[in-house]
């Protein structure tokens, strides 16, 4: 398994990382969409397991979680889903999950099963660096990489501690707020990426509010190793629930379009 660092170095450009809620709007459609995104050129995938109370997410991803749960998505099925994606094409997969789902499954068993399904890293949305060992230590033992968040209000000292716990990449939150597409890119992005690059060699990927090829290009020019696009893509699923072909082709076209500017 190649590490994120190797993946980013090999690319020699900013990686495109689309985000999907696993099982949105249902298992089969979701799998087809994710495969289409991989085929269209996604470099890394960020996938989320739906949760009843996603406090770090805005309305678009909340609705996706509700759709997926209503269609019967479970943690076990999500792991099967990941296996089917990596069987389709080996691609680094970062998981975004709320802690209670991991906790109930059993942290060590969860990480082991996720690794076996072909996953690369786990980011727990509601687990900060202070309790990070609950996941970082078993993740390391399992051979997974760790991803933690840094935000515009994270101090340098804390960002350094976060970088020390991170083996995969730093998920840089581009703004203050929850996930969601935005008109313009936050002016906090460039200074934050520059600040992080001075502090650490760990790869830096930027997400939250990234909605257009122009945003992605700005993030690339700021020196980020990867750009994560979530709500904008999830909204394309929501907008095409009655036409699954169009859902796939629109998302594939968007990925091609973003990739062209990176």
């Amino acid at each position: 398994m190649t590490t994120y660092k190797e993946t980013f170095e090999k690319l020699n450009r900013t990686a495109l990382i689309p985000f999907f809620v696993i099982g949105d709007p249902d298992f089969d459609t979701s799998l087809a969409v994710v495969k289409a995104a991989v085929d269209a050129g996604a470099d890394v995938l960020e996938l989320g397991i739906p949760f009843s109370d996603p406090i770090a997410d805005g309305p678009t991803i909340q609705k996706a979680d509700i759709r997926a749960l209503a269609a019967g998505m479970t943690v076990q099925k999500a792991l099967d889903f990941i296996k089917q994606v990596t069987d389709h094409k080996p691609i680094p997969i970062g998981l975004l999950v709320y802690y209670n789902l991991v906790y109930q499954y059993g942290t060590e068993k969860f990480l082991k099963d996720f690794k076996a399904a072909g996953g690369s890293s786990v980011l727990v949305a509601d687990l900060s660096i202070d309790d990070a060992d609950e996941i970082a230590i078993p993740a390391k033992d399992t051979g997974l990489e760790t991803v933690f968040m840094v935000t515009p209000v994270t101090s340098d000292g804390r960002a350094k501690r976060i970088a020390e716990k991170t083996t995969g990449f730093i998920y840089t939150v581009s703004l203050l707020g929850v996930t969601g597409a935005r008109e313009s890119l936050s002016d906090m992005v460039r200074p934050l990426v520059t600040r992080l690059k001075k502090l650490t060699d760990v790869p830096v990927c930027v997400g939250f509010g990234v909605s257009t090829p122009r945003h992605a290009k700005e993030i690339a020019s700021a020196g980020a190793d990867g750009v994560i696009i979530g709500s904008k893509i999830v909204k394309m699923i929501e907008d095409n629930l009655d036409d699954k072909q169009k859902m796939q082709s629109e998302i594939a076209a968007f990925i091609t379009q973003v990739k062209a500017v990176l």
Binding site: I55, A56, Y99, A125, D126, L127, S128, I129, D130, D131, F148, M149, V150, T151, V153, T154, S155, R158, I162, V173, L176
Partner: peptide
């Protein structure tokens, strides 16, 4: 650490930690 035995703690997204 805000613990009562093993209960409690502060399981929040990173952005809320400074607050």
């Amino acid at each position: 650490n805000g613990r009562f035995g093993d209960f409690g703690g502060f399981y929040v997204p990173e952005v809320l930690i400074p607050a």
